[in-house]
Design a protein around this nucleic acid. Structure first.
Length: 173
DNA sequence: CGTTCGGCGCTTA
DNA sequence: CTAAGCGCCGAAC
């Protein structure tokens, strides 16, 4: 038998797909994978596995908006549907709250912790950021330490990537 | 500036 | 099941 239903359907239902584009503002590629039309992972990388647009109209639309954000720094990605199943409860809550933070704004790890009802869990918030499956769309780059530094960023490019993203959005730091 | 130490959620042993 | 270790912190020296 031939496995699961992954061929295209007229209603555009379940269909895994992935694609990537080069983001000049980062000097890196951005690769996304979709499951059932929802964004499941986003990778910032210098070596994408899949090049070019993904399969599916919806998927291409989402990727195009992400690309647009990386040009203008102003795209509102809050309504992009993401798949956070598999992310542990606390981390998931944190990621969901973080989604509401718009381009140009920043907040601290402690702020997020407090907002989640666990003041003192700032370091655990850092852990949630480090494991964010969909950076940029869930804007973990907008979370900075209390004080003047940019803190860390574990995606490809490290703090340089974080700085580029914040600069693009016009954040001051 | 740097160093230490407490605290939290999660993973792994 | 408990225990130890780790990480995009934060506050206090």
């Amino acid at each position: 038998m031939k496995g699961s239903f992954t061929r295209p359907r007229e209603d555009g239902a379940v269909m895994p797909s992935s694609g990537s584009f080069f983001a000049a503002s980062l000097g890196l590629h951005v690769e996304a994978s979709f499951e059932g039309g929802r964004l499941q992972t986003l990778r910032i990388t210098d070596a994408p596995a899949a090049r070019g647009p993904p399969e599916g109209e919806r998927e291409r639309g989402v990727l195009a908006r992400i690309a647009r954000h990386l040009e203008t720094g102003r795209e509102d990605l809050r309504d992009v549907e993401v798949d956070l199943t598999g992310v542990p409860p606390f981390q998931r809550r944190i990621l969901e709250m973080l989604r509401e933070v718009p381009p140009g704004a920043t907040l601290s790890y402690g702020d997020l912790a407090k907002r989640a009802g666990s003041p003192g869990a700032s370091r655990a918030v850092g852990g949630a950021m480090a494991r964010n499956p969909v950076p940029i769309v869930v804007p973990c780059h907008r979370v900075v330490p209390t004080g003047k530094s940019l803190g860390n960023y574990s995606a490809t490019g490290g703090v340089a990537t974080k700085r580029a993203l914040l600069a693009l959005e016009g954040s001051r730091f």
